[in-house]
Amino acid sequence: MIRVLLADDEAMIRAGVRAILTADQEIDVIAEAADGRQAVELAAAHRPDVALLDIRMPRLDGLAAAAEIVRAVPEVAVAILTTFGDDAYLAKALDGGARGFLLKSGDPRELISGVHAVAGGGAYLAPKVAERVITKLRATGFSRETAARARVESLTQRERDVLALLGGGLSNAQIANRLHLVEGTVKGHVSAIFDRLGLDNRVQAAVLAHEAGLSAEQGS
């Protein structure tokens, strides 16, 4: 079970986000905060797996709260959930140690995927934000390999294993056998990979795996 601390100064927003998260049977919202200072205190008291923070909150904004939580309770994975996709906010959030940056205007599935990703030790950028970051990387001369690696960074380690085997042309059944999983679980991972990375088919997934330097041997 992924234990989540939710912080937003608007009660209706908290209720909506809580409803989305708890629709996933693997997520439990264990505490809620109405301001950044309370979020820091609750993170220290409850030590959730994930602290999901709004940016604009009283007493202490979400970016400052994120940095304090990372310093005080480093085992808590912090993600920012905001209506503001500004690059300055993104840079400050990541500099402060946040592992995720999600938009309230995004698909609810992105929220659930983001919580799973950061709880699993990975990172997650909302697709719209990730697309902008990748565009900037390419504009500054970064290679396709660098851009591809930036995209797959949002995946959990298990999802990267699955993507590597997709790159090797393996079927879901073959991947399940290689990773000692049931085929239904593999199908779920593949769907999550497609949704998170904006892929339409296995060919695109294979191309991305090769560009990111993932190999079937790594997925073994």
Score class of each variant (00 low, 15 high):
residue 1 M to G: 14
residue 2 I to R: 05
residue 2 I to A: 08
residue 5 L to N: 09
residue 9 D to G: 10
residue 9 D to H: 05
residue 14 R to G: 07
residue 17 V to N: 03
residue 18 R to T: 09
residue 31 A to K: 05
residue 35 D to W: 00
residue 37 R to D: 15
residue 37 R to E: 15
residue 41 E to L: 02
residue 43 A to L: 06
residue 48 P to C: 00
residue 50 V to G: 05
residue 55 I to P: 03
residue 56 R to S: 09
residue 56 R to A: 08
residue 61 D to E: 02
residue 62 G to A: 02
residue 62 G to R: 03
residue 65 A to P: 03
residue 67 A to C: 07
residue 70 V to F: 07
residue 73 V to D: 11
residue 73 V to Y: 04
residue 74 P to T: 06
residue 74 P to G: 05
residue 79 A to H: 09
residue 79 A to S: 15
residue 79 A to L: 10
residue 82 T to K: 01
residue 84 F to E: 07
residue 84 F to H: 05
residue 85 G to P: 00
residue 86 D to W: 08
residue 89 Y to G: 02
residue 89 Y to W: 01
residue 92 K to W: 07
residue 97 G to P: 03
residue 100 G to R: 09
residue 105 S to H: 03
residue 107 D to Y: 03
residue 113 S to F: 01
residue 114 G to L: 04
residue 117 A to I: 13
residue 117 A to V: 14
residue 122 G to I: 06
residue 124 Y to Q: 04
residue 127 P to E: 13
residue 129 V to D: 14
residue 129 V to C: 10
residue 137 L to Q: 15
residue 138 R to D: 12
residue 140 T to L: 13
residue 143 S to V: 04
residue 149 R to Y: 06
residue 153 E to M: 08
residue 156 T to E: 07
residue 157 Q to E: 15
residue 162 V to S: 14
residue 167 G to H: 07
residue 172 N to P: 01
residue 173 A to D: 10
residue 176 A to R: 14
residue 179 L to W: 03
residue 179 L to N: 06
residue 181 L to K: 11
residue 183 E to I: 15
residue 184 G to P: 01
residue 191 S to I: 02
residue 191 S to P: 00
residue 194 F to W: 06
residue 195 D to C: 02
residue 195 D to I: 06
residue 196 R to I: 03
residue 201 N to C: 07
residue 202 R to P: 05
residue 207 V to Q: 15
residue 207 V to R: 14
residue 219 G to Y: 06
